[in-house]
Amino acid sequence: MSGVTGPPGPLWEPWADAVAQRVAAGFDRLDLLTAVDRPASGEIEIVIHLVRRPEAGGLEDVWGHTLLDRAAPMLESVTGLLPAAAWHEREIHEMFGVQVSGHPDLRPLLLLDVASPPPLRKDTPLVARVDTPWPGARR
């Protein structure tokens, strides 16, 4: 895609209103909605990528992001604006332990249960690697 704008600019706040503003401007196709754990700053970053198709042809896109408190992350659902966000928000919920307010159905998407601690938090240990001694440590 030609219009990728690189790193996101200012925070989109409040989140759902900021998303609604872009959807109203025609960016109504959801390409990506995900999270990045940032333990050093105690935040979880939410990243969104929206696309619109101008009548003249081609694609235009916009990146947005916001930061949540890592200790008690709470995200406003945007499923009312973008129904396709439903699965992305379920994934953010189970993988990063983010509560999503206003989501109609927050069942786990990929895991049997919401694991505790959330598997994609960077300080979550991989249990198998904790249990298994590294063979290269010998000698």
Partner: peptide, 19 residues
């Protein structure tokens, strides 16, 4: 030569050497 390079580099931890 039991240098352990293969053991240390194996991403899967599937090689074991005793020497």
């Amino acid at each position: 030569t039991s240098c352990m390079l293969c053991v240390k580099e194996c991403p899967d931890w599937c090689i074991h050497i005793e020497s």
